[in-house]
């Protein structure tokens, strides 16, 4: 199996809502793969399936030839040591300084001496440009710095896979450019398999080798960014061009507007 991560016929339901109907995708080793799609299509859910935080109703999820939903709790934690995840919120530990946040996985999973941990943490912080902010606490960081700190922590153990959950959301153009550059550099330097979940088309397409477009619980487009730009499918074109209405409707399903305006005030 040359692909690093494989999802086969995954079906997943949350409550009464079916998130994925029949999703199959392959994420190649050492490449940057983007998972794109409108908000609420389950892009983050897909990352949680890969990380084993949730289990599919049916179908298979393979990471490095190991079937994630079938692993024991201990085995799953072992697999996760080779994964890094950048959460949308950053999720830095609020009681720890930036330095201690980055040192956290090293202190837990290795027996390295303090001096070596310090050097490794400073190296990671230097690579994201936050060495000078090592002693700051998360509450003292800007949004972009927070995400860079979280990125340094995610790569602390030099994982083979790194997952980015909406890495560009809420950032100013400068911070966004910095994160784009960092993702690209990390992929090239460390050869990590990178998965970016995003709906920022231009930034993601600029660094992705492969893009999967998900909508309505299915994969509706797959290929290189150039391939997707040329795709005829109205669903793909609506997303790529950012059209407000189309196969993905602007309006949430509702009763007829005129009827609703004319009816008596309902008991809500």
């Amino acid at each position: 199996m040359t692909d690093h991560i494989v999802l086969e016929n995954v079906v997943f339901t949350r409550g009464v809502r079916r998130i994925f109907y029949d999703v199959s995708l392959r994420i190649p080793r050492g490449k940057v793969t983007a998972i794109m799609g409108p908000s609420g299509t389950g892009k983050t859910t897909l990352l949680r399936l890969v990380g084993g935080q949730i289990v599919p109703d049916s179908g298979r999820v393979w990471v490095d030839e190991q079937e994630i939903p079938k692993l024991s709790r201990e085995a799953l934690f072992d697999v996760r040591k080779s994964m890094g995840m950048l959460f949308q919120s950053g999720a830095l530990f609020s009681d720890y300084s930036v330095f201690d946040n980055v040192a956290f996985p090293l202190r837990i999973h290795t027996d390295l001496p303090d001096q070596m941990i310090r050097d490794l943490v400073l190296l990671k912080l230097q690579s994201v440009g936050l060495r000078g902010a090592a002693d700051l606490f998360p509450s003292e960081l800007s949004g972009g710095m927070h995400r860079r700190g979280a990125l340094a922590r995610a790569i602390a153990l030099d994982p083979k896979i790194i997952m980015y959950d909406e890495p560009f959301t809420g950032l100013d153009p400068v911070a966004m450019g910095v994160i784009v550059l960092l993702i690209q550099t990390l992929n090239q330097v460390y050869g990590m398999t990178s998965i970016i979940v995003s709906h920022d088309i231009a930034e993601t397409a600029s660094i992705a080798d492969m893009v999967y477009l998900i909508s309505d619980g299915k994969v509706v487009g797959a290929g290189s960014p150039d391939h997707l730009y040329k795709e005829d499918s109205p669903r793909v074109q609506q997303f790529i061009k950012g059209l407000p209405d189309g196969p993905v409707p602007f309006h949430y399903p509702a009763a007829d507007f005129e009827d609703e305006l004319l009816e008596e005030i309902p008991n809500r």
């Binding site: 990380g51 935080q53 709790r73 934690f77 072992d78 697999v79 996760r80 040591k81 994964m83 890094g84 995840m85 959460f87 949308q88 919120s89 999720a91 830095l92 530990f93 609020s94 956290f104 996985p105 837990i108 999973h109 979280a150 922590r153 153990l157």
Partner: peptide
Amino acid sequence: ATEQLSSMEMMGVDSLQR
């Protein structure tokens, strides 16, 4: 709520134990 528990779990750290 701030995903700190999720991030810990994704680092391979058992939040129940920690």
